[in-house]
């Protein structure tokens, strides 16, 4: 008698508790899940759907055309040019930002207050919006009244119209971007450096190892994981480049700096061809997805 009643008393609240947990779990999640479903999952699906349509941004004109957008994309020289420029930009900027971040981190990983102040300086440009950065650098690079032009004139050189020159426009965007973002990899590398146990360096010092040997044998290998992370983050970030070319070169001169995101933006919001723009978006998504997968595979391998 007593045993059964205890069991009853035990099982009923247990079932009730489970029910309450389920209810409260989803109640806590509901607000976020609502936004997640409506503003992320649904648009993602809609984007795939739109890429199969001739879909105008304004009005109701939308016609299912299957894979015709993808076929058009394949034959579209503007797309291939934009893809090429995007890859070019990311392939230069991501490694350059990584190296610059690493060099700064190595130079500034010191105990002095001065080190701290210098770290703050290099990181600071990270906090500006893309519009501030492009406005500042458009002015710095301006051939008539720019900072660099002033300097070149002072030493008797002819100023260069960096942003209007096909050979200079891309490097100018890269330099602008490096100034903007390099503090971020620096901070990640500094965090990585902090995790190297000091005893390792003590041992190397007792061996009288040279600065270069310590760097090559101890520091750089210890930073391998951080380096992988930085390269992937930077690559994904720069594949998405948009504001710098839009505001500094408008993709010119002669389309030499127009990246994919700008192509998406212009195709949809200037030419009103939202279906086709969605197709370009899908391609961009696949590219970034592959980079992320690659990182996943590499970090797995390293974990083994």
């Amino acid at each position: 008698m007593t045993v059964t009643s205890v069991q009853d008393a035990g099982s009923r609240p247990h079932g009730l508790a489970r029910y309450r947990d389920a209810l409260s779990g989803y109640a806590f999640l509901a607000p976020f899940l609502a936004f997640y479903a409506v503003f992320l999952l649904y648009p993602f699906g809609l984007g795939l759907w739109m890429s199969l349509h001739d879909w105008e941004i304004v009005g109701d004109y939308r016609e299912f055309i299957g894979l015709l957008n993808y076929q058009e994309l394949w034959d579209d020289p503007y797309f291939w040019e934009a893809l090429k420029r995007t890859l070019q930009f990311a392939a230069i900027t991501a490694p350059a930002a990584t190296v610059l971040g690493l060099v700064l981190a190595l130079a500034l990983n010191g105990p002095l207050r001065l080190h701290g102040a210098l770290r703050a300086v290099f990181f600071a440009s990270n906090i500006f919006s893309v519009t501030v950065v492009t406005l500042v650098w458009s002015m710095v690079l301006n051939p008539d009244r720019g900072l660099i032009a002033n300097g070149m004139r002072a030493v008797g050189l002819e100023p260069i119209a960096f942003l209007a020159d096909q050979d200079w426009a891309m490097p100018a965007l890269v330099v602008t971007t490096l100034w903007w973002v390099a503090g971020f990899p620096m901070a990640l590398f500094l965090a990585g450096l902090q995790q190297i146990p000091p005893e390792v360096y003590e041992a190397a010092r007792l061996d009288n190892a040279s600065r270069w040997a310590v760097l090559r044998r101890i520091t750089l290998p210890a930073l391998a994981r951080t380096t992988l992370l930085v390269v992937v983050l930077q690559t994904v970030m720069h594949l998405q480049v948009f504001g710098q070319p839009l505001l500094m070169t408008r993709g010119g001169p002669a389309n030499s700096t127009r990246p994919l995101v700008q192509l998406i933006y212009e195709t949809s919001f200037r030419d009103w061809r939202s279906g086709y723009a969605s197709t370009v978006s899908v391609v961009l998504f696949v590219m970034m997805f592959c980079v992320a997968l690659l990182q996943f595979r590499l970090s797995r391998q390293e974990g083994d």
């Binding site: 992320l40 809609l46 998405q240 949809s268 978006s281």
Partner: peptide
Amino acid sequence: MIPEQAILVPLHAM
């Protein structure tokens, strides 16, 4: 894994 550029156009349509 879904970047903002991938949903920019449909979000605008919505």
